[in-house]
């Protein structure tokens, strides 16, 4: 059966497109699917380092499109999960090196061999974004709960719809539950109301993401990581499973809380 091509974009940079691509891709392959990740950010490649594959690059997407090599030669097999491959972006070329039609032709060819192809789009709404979108069947938009990211996400949603893709789904990234509770961060409902899209998942702000990027191991591999859990659930939803949204609050049991209280009293006494 023919696979589905997803594009992950955001408009604004730095909201977590590459992190989302790496994690959703890894989680889908952990669920037994054949997955290909394509870094479409030509000139600013990043997916390779986030996946920890920077030392394995031989060929890149521009060389594939120019016919220098076969697509299979440019695919790097993931270190941690089976059936996960990455085609890196070129670092020394710019976005005009490829066209949307070429990317589409490549994906159409490759989707015979994969269940999911996920394209990591560059930020912005220029040529690179158009190239990435041209090949996709479905789009996922990543945003953070801040005004600049949401505004850009809205623009991108408009372009995706104008391009004839189905209504994109939203990943709300880097949510800080404490701030939401205090009323200093918009709630998920506020944001869905503004953007009028459906929600694919909520990911809490998590220091472990930095650690996972440092190591080049996507957070979904850490079973105790909350953001990783969010991405695992997102992967399940991509597959069509109906999984409840992750609860953003970490609630301790009464016993743990009591233990902490006792511990806390002890430290005060020690200080005094």
């Amino acid at each position: 059966m023919e696979g589905e091509v997803y594009v992950i974009n955001s408009g604004k940079g730095g909201v977590g497109k590459t992190t989302a691509t790496a994690n959703v891709g890894s989680a889908l392959s952990m669920r037994g699917h054949r997955v290909l990740l394509i870094d479409a950010d030509i000139g600013l490649r990043n997916l390779d380092v986030v996946m920890g594959l920077e030392n394995r690059i031989v060929y890149d997407i521009v060389q594939v499109i120019e016919g220098v090599c076969q697509p299979q030669q440019a695919m790097m097999r993931d270190r941690l999960t089976e059936n996960l491959y990455v085609i890196p972006a070129a670092q020394t070329r710019d976005k005009s090196a490829v066209t949307g039609e070429q990317v589409k032709k490549l994906c159409d060819e490759l989707k015979q061999d994969f269940d999911y192809i996920i394209i990591d789009s560059p930020a912005g709404i220029e040529q690179g974004f158009k190239n990435a979108m041209a090949a996709a069947d479905k789009a996922i938009v990543v945003t953070t709960p801040d005004v600049a990211a949401i505004r850009d996400a809205d623009r991108v949603i408009g372009f995706i719809e104008a391009a004839g893709l189905s209504k994109p789904e939203l990943i709300l990234n880097r949510v800080r539950p404490g701030m939401v509770r205090r009323g200093d961060m918009m709630t998920t409902e506020d944001i869905l109301d503004l953007l009028s899209v459906s929600l694919l998942g909520i990911v809490p702000e998590d220091e472990k993401i930095v650690v996972s990027t440092n190591k080049g191991v996507p957070a979904v591999h850490d079973m105790n990581c909350r953001s990783g859990e969010s991405f695992r659930r997102i992967a399940a939803r991509v597959e069509g499973e109906d999984v409840p949204m992750m609860r953003m609050e970490v609630r301790d049991g009464i016993f743990t809380w009591f233990k902490k209280m006792v511990g806390f009293k002890g430290t005060v006494r020690a200080n005094a």
């Binding site: 801040d146 005004v147 505004r151 809205d154 961060m185 503004l194």
Partner: peptide
């Protein structure tokens, strides 16, 4: 006032103009 209301209202106006 909780700053999320400011964010929501400002965005609402900006998005209407953008769209």
């Amino acid at each position: 006032e909780a700053s999320k209301y400011a964010a929501h209202n400002r965005l609402q106006a900006v998005l209407l103009q953008d769209r």
